[in-house]
Structures are given as C-alpha cells and as structure tokens.
Design a protein around this nucleic acid. Structure first.
Lengths: 235, 235
DNA sequence: ACAAAAGTGTTTGAACTACACCCATGC
DNA sequence: GCATGGGTGTAGTTCAAACACTTTTGT
C-alpha cells in the first residue's frame, strides 16, 4: 500500500479550524492576520502542522490552545480534507479542516494578530480559507436543525429569548422563540434550572432559565422519512 | 504555517474507498486480500498513495480504476480522515476515506485478489478498514433519507419494487413500496419512462418503469425544522 | 374464475408553524 | 392602569405510515 523507503512527493499535513461564535448578534469566525508572505496581511484560520504523535483532532485542539483557552471550545468536528495540489504555494500541503464552536458568553483573550470577523462579511482570506469558513457555516446551520448542537453555541444557562438570538444569528434568519422552545422541549433537550431573570427597566414577565440536558453532540431527528416499520403492538 | 525546509515527521497520505453496492439482496463492499505483511490475508479497502499532482478525489478515482471500471462508479464523496498515529504499523500514514457507490445492475470484472463481501458479515479486515466500512454504511443510510442518493445505487431504469429491494438492502429493513414511491414522487425525484415490464409466469399487473429525474446528488429534505419564516402572502 | 403483483385512495397520526391569548413585572 | 416582554393554548398544515382496495396481468 505504501512504500516507505522512497518518498517521491514530500507532503505536509496541516490542521485548520474554523472557530465559530455568536457575538454581537452575528456569527463570527476567529482569524489571524498573516505577517509574512505568501499572502501577507490576508486573514487565515488558526492551525498548523500535524505532529508525529497525534491524530488530527488532538492536533487541532493543541493548536487552538495557542489562540483560545481550550476549555472555552465547546465542540470540535471534522469538516473535510482540502487537498488541491496548488492550494498553497510551495511544497505540497494537505489540510484537514475542522468546525469548532465557542459558546456565546465567552470572550477569550486573543493574541494581537487575531480577531473575530462576521462570517457574512469576511475580510480578504488567505489560500482556500474563505471556502473552509463557508463550509463550516453550512455544516453548523444544518446541524442546528437535526442535532442538539445548540448547546455548543449557547451559554450554560439561558432564557429562551437569549437562545433565540443565538439560533437566529447562526441561521441567518429570525427564529420564533415559541417554536424554538417547542421543538427543543419536544425532543427533551431543554431543562428548567428553576431560576428566573429579573426584567429590565421596561418591565415584562421574568424569564425562566434553561439549560441543555446534554452537552455531547447527538442526532435528535435521525431520519425523517423511510423509517423502519413500527414494531407490532405486542412488543 | 509550515516550515518546508525541515521535515521532522515524514508522512504519507493515502486515499481509501469503501465501494458499496447492493448485490444479491445485501449491501456489499469491495475488498482485496492482502498478500504481504503486515496483516497478510486480511481484507482491505482499495486505494493507495496520494500522487503529487492530484487532489484526494482525483486520486481515489484514479486508484479505483485499477479495480473497477470508473464509469461504473456512480458516486464518490469524502467520508473522513483517519489519522491515529498507530493506525498502520511503520511510518506514519494518514488516510482520507471515501464513500463510493456502484449501481446494483453492474457486475464489474474484478482482479483475482478482490471480492465483494456483505457489510453485515465482514471478513477479518486490515488496520482500521472495518471501521471505515461501517462509517460509509452509516453515511449512506442517513443520506437515503434526505437526499436523492438512491440514483447512485439503482439501475438507470427500474420498477418500484426493484427500487424497494435496493433501499431495503441498503437500509437493513423492509421498506414499503407504497411509501417509497410516495416519498420520492412527492419530492419530484421519479419520472415515468413510459415503458412497462412483462409480468412473470405467476402473472400480475405489468410494472411501470421509472428513472431518477436527476443524477447528481442533491439534498431534497433540507432541514425539517426551524425553517425560515414563510414569505408574506403578498410575495 | 382465481392468484399474483402493481398501483391508488384514504385514514390516521405526528410534528411543526402561526397566531391568539394569558401571565408577571416596571412604571 | 398600561406597556413590555415571557409563556401557553390551540388551530391549521404538511407529510409520512399503514392498510384497504382497485387494476392488470398469467394460468
């Protein structure tokens, strides 16, 4: 399968993460500004070379720790491999891209060359990193519908209207608070904490606080159609 | 991002494909039997080393051509990267795994060391290839529900009951022909060809022939819930 | 006529959207 | 009181599963 004695095409494997967070009402991505050529001053995704003793997920978590406190990263998942031979100038570099999420209440300290940018208004990006960000956003949007991945975007406790803002920012359209609560409750994803928030100066009923019942990603709406036949009543 | 002048950890990138086909009423995968150590006589996925001038998809298509006529491959998509440092003995090998499909009416000529095996009864597999096959099956099963990927498993023209067999084999449970036709028709995926088949000796009504309206993968049931608000009536 | 296989009509139920209405608070 | 924001009740719709029934053939 592989011939280790000769290496006709030296190859570097890098890992990259599109770190997404809802901030200031919009879905944003963490980028750093390249100081050096190639593509100096363009914005690129955090990441780096895959180490000898780590798999790609371990590697991206390690490399993210240089930009963001890892404990603030609530979810990491593989997106895809980007491997066009000319995707970066110079020697061949194949990248494994990740989708990574940070809850909206976090505000990590960032290195000076690093900043958040709205996904809907990206600055000039390096290499194929812009395409990776869009793939990440699409994946997130899809998963908001059929998994519990909202837990990774929301703070540990939240009101329904706060959660509505998070979902609306990520999806790019207004979500109804009523229906959001219904859907997530029906699926058993939401739990009351028992706490309520005080209304603002304008008054209004105090809002109940919720949390997500589970904080590991799970598919909650497995396949909508072509389900297996129902078990006979005797079962 | 990468330092090309030194290469502390030589790394090989391979591409692997789980080629799935419905044959003899079950979902099967194409495997070849390794002649040499390591893992001699175990069964492994077709694939090989990524070439210098190709991306991973081009590479897997090229390598599959050595086992199966490429024109018979109806669908190829990335599955995931497998990168555990010890996933194969010896020098580091990172793999990009693919899901690949062959329509059920094809019966490609195979090399002598290659054979189809039911996914539900795999022989002893090499390395992590067994896990890759199961991931491929799970991906296929999920996509049968919310995309038109059936086109890649079915022959160009088929009766509803033939299509039912294909779906049943892939999903692992009996699918109702009635409901299958309803779901696919409602989504506009099926077209009448105008032809009908002759009944067998036992009689029965002649079956209408259908084809899939589209032969490129598309999501047909985008998100079941949290849809964007309906456009106002005036639109 | 009868059996067999294909295809349609119709009921039931689940799940989601939309909207009306009620609740609890500040001023 | 009344405005404001939170929460529930309840149609109405869509979509899919289940099953009865009709259609069209071979024997």
């Amino acid at each position: 399968m592989t011939d280790a004695t000769t290496d006709p095409s030296p190859l570097v494997h890098e890992v990259l993460a599109a770190v997404l967070q809802v901030r200031q009402g919009s879905l944003q991505v963490l980028l750093w500004e390249r100081a050096l050529e190639p593509h100096a001053h363009r914005w690129s995704l955090p990441g780096g070379r895959l180490g000898a003793d780590e798999d790609v997920e371990t590697s991206i978590r390690r490399q993210l720790a240089e930009k963001v406190d890892v404990r603030q990263v609530s979810h990491v998942e593989q997106l895809a491999v980007f491997s066009a031979p000319d995707r970066v100038p110079g020697p061949r570099v194949v990248a494994t891209a990740f989708l990574s999420l940070v809850p909206s209440h976090m505000d990590p300290e960032l290195p000076g060359d690093t900043a958040w940018h709205p996904v809907s208004a990206l600055p000039e990006t390096a290499f194929d990193h812009g395409a990776i960000v869009l793939r990440a956003r699409n994946r997130l949007r899809a998963k908001l519908s059929y998994t519990n991945i909202g837990f990774a975007l929301a703070p540990p406790e939240f009101t329904v209207s706060a959660l509505r803002s998070v979902y609306s920012a990520a999806l790019g359209y207004k979500v109804s608070a009523t229906n959001l609560q219904r859907v997530l409750s029906r699926r058993g994803l939401l739990e009351h904490t028992g706490e309520t928030t005080k209304p603002g100066r304008a008054g209004g009923r105090p809002a109940a606080q919720f949390r997500f019942a589970d904080s590991t990603m799970a598919v909650t709406d497995p396949f909508a159609v072509l389900k297996p036949p129902a078990a006979p009543k005797g079962q």
